[in-house]
């Protein structure tokens, strides 16, 4: 068992345990903060898979952006004065059954399929250069469309979140 394997198991355990806390914890704040460790663990998994740019983007976008938005959402939709922000759960039995069926099916497929693993491909030294080139050549149209989608989504989100009853009547 070499170093990479040990690192994989460490990152996998961090990811799965904190994802479990995220899903099972009754306190929303605990869920939000354990989601931080989930994202960091997934970033470590990306590093092990030779995806350094994606790992850094994961930290920046998920931890810096999405998690902050989620925490703001928690703060804005609860009375923060009572620190205990609990949440209920429902559909435990059908939820567990569906989860077990889907997870078991996925893992069974992953086990039984004979994946085509191409050995001997030399790992890319730094993916950032390669990704930048691909953005400007092969993926130019999706890249531009993604930028427009992001712009429209953010403007739309700001508009939807700001609209209140008085401005609705004036419109």
């Amino acid at each position: 068992m070499n170093l990479v394997d040990i690192l994989f198991y460490i990152f996998a355990i961090v990811t799965l345990v904190s994802a479990g806390i995220t899903v099972y914890s009754r306190n929303i704040i605990y869920s939000a903060f354990s989601l931080l460790f989930t994202f960091c663990g997934v970033a470590g998994i990306y590093v092990l898979l030779n995806a350094d740019f994606i790992a850094v983007a994961q930290i920046l976008i998920y931890v810096g952006g999405i998690l902050m938005l989620l925490v703001f959402g928690v703060m804005l939709t609860h009375k923060v004065i009572n620190v205990e922000i609990k949440t209920g759960i429902l559909n435990i039995i059908p939820g567990s059954m569906i989860t077990a069926i889907v997870g078991g099916t996925l893992c069974g497929i992953f086990m039984s399929t004979d994946w085509l693993i191409i050995e001997g491909v030399p790992p890319i030294k730094s993916t950032t250069n390669e990704i930048g080139t691909m953005f400007m050549t092969k993926y130019l149209l999706p890249f531009e469309i993604a930028s427009v989608v992001l712009l429209v989504a953010l403007i739309g989100a700001a508009y939807i979140a700001r609209r209140d009853k008085t401005s609705k009547q004036s419109v």
Partner: peptide, 27 residues
Amino acid sequence: SGILFAMGLYGVITRRNAILVLMGIEL
């Protein structure tokens, strides 16, 4: 990834709070 997907699905199905459902989608 399969286990992570199952956990996210469990969160989406069972949590009452809409923000926790979003966290499940992120997973």
